[in-house]
Simulated assay, not measured.
Amino acid sequence: MKNDTLEQEFKYSNGTLRNKLGITQSEFLSSMEFNTVSQRIKAIKLNPNKFKVNSISDFKLMHRFLFGRIYSWAGQDRHEHRPPYDLSKNGHQFQPWSSMDMAEKWINRELADTNAKVKPLAIDYANLLIDINELHPFREGNGRTTKIFLQTIAGQHKQELWFPRYQGELVKAMNNVDFEEVSRIIKVVNR
């Protein structure tokens, strides 16, 4: 699918993402999205037993839970879209849609290995963080969904996972696929 066709499908003419709320001003949409998603993240954190994380399918369900009140495509990844499409951001090309099935299988194996550990290490979370970021299945909300997804996994292991307040260093390490640097930046706290 060409970029201009995608732009028309996903954005209003002024560049604001099309949404269920009919909001056409990006600043107002950002505010509503922030408030809605923050409330949903809080619900996940307050009810961790309701959100078990075992596969990338759970990641999609979490995205739908976080963003479903705002976007009709929430939880639907790029290769499920008709037609499927590739995605890049700031010159960084994410997983091509044609190999997303294979990447999801890889991530599911990583999730199984991580969940099998009593106390996963920062490198385990770094591997998942980088691989899910490279998958980048959704038009919007990948980073926020990935963070709460990984924090939920940590919670299942009686751990807390902390990300830096300022993301520049982390994003650079993820884009460089530097697992060791990412594992140094994120913090795992055992409870």
Rank of each mutant, 00 (worst) to 15 (best):
E27G: 10
E27A: 14
F28H: 11
F28R: 11
S30Y: 02
M32S: 01
M32F: 01
E33H: 08
E33C: 11
N35C: 12
T36M: 12
V37P: 00
S38F: 11
S38G: 08
Q39Y: 02
R40D: 13
I41G: 12
K42H: 07
A43V: 03
A43I: 05
I44A: 13
L46W: 13
N47Y: 11
N47F: 12
P48M: 12
N49R: 14
K50R: 14
F51E: 09
F51N: 08
F51Y: 13
V53D: 01
V53L: 05
N54E: 12
N54C: 07
N54T: 10
N54Q: 11
S55T: 01
I56A: 04
I56T: 10
S57G: 10
S57Q: 09
F59E: 00
F59T: 03
K60E: 04
L61Q: 15
L61W: 10
H63N: 10
H63E: 00
R64C: 08
F65A: 05
F67I: 05
I70Q: 06
I70R: 04
I70S: 04
Y71L: 09
Y71V: 07
Y71R: 08
Y71W: 08
S72W: 09
W73T: 09
G75A: 08
Q76Y: 00
D77H: 03
D77V: 00
R78Q: 10
H79L: 02
H79F: 03
H81I: 00
H81T: 01
H81Y: 07
R82D: 08
R82V: 10
R82T: 09
R82I: 10
P84R: 06
P84D: 07
D86R: 11
D86E: 12
D86P: 07
S88W: 02
S88Q: 08
K89W: 07
K89R: 11
K89T: 06
K89D: 08
N90R: 09
N90A: 08
G91M: 05
G91E: 05
G91V: 03
H92E: 08
Q93Y: 02
Q93N: 03
Q93C: 00
Q95N: 02
P96N: 14
P96K: 14
S99L: 11
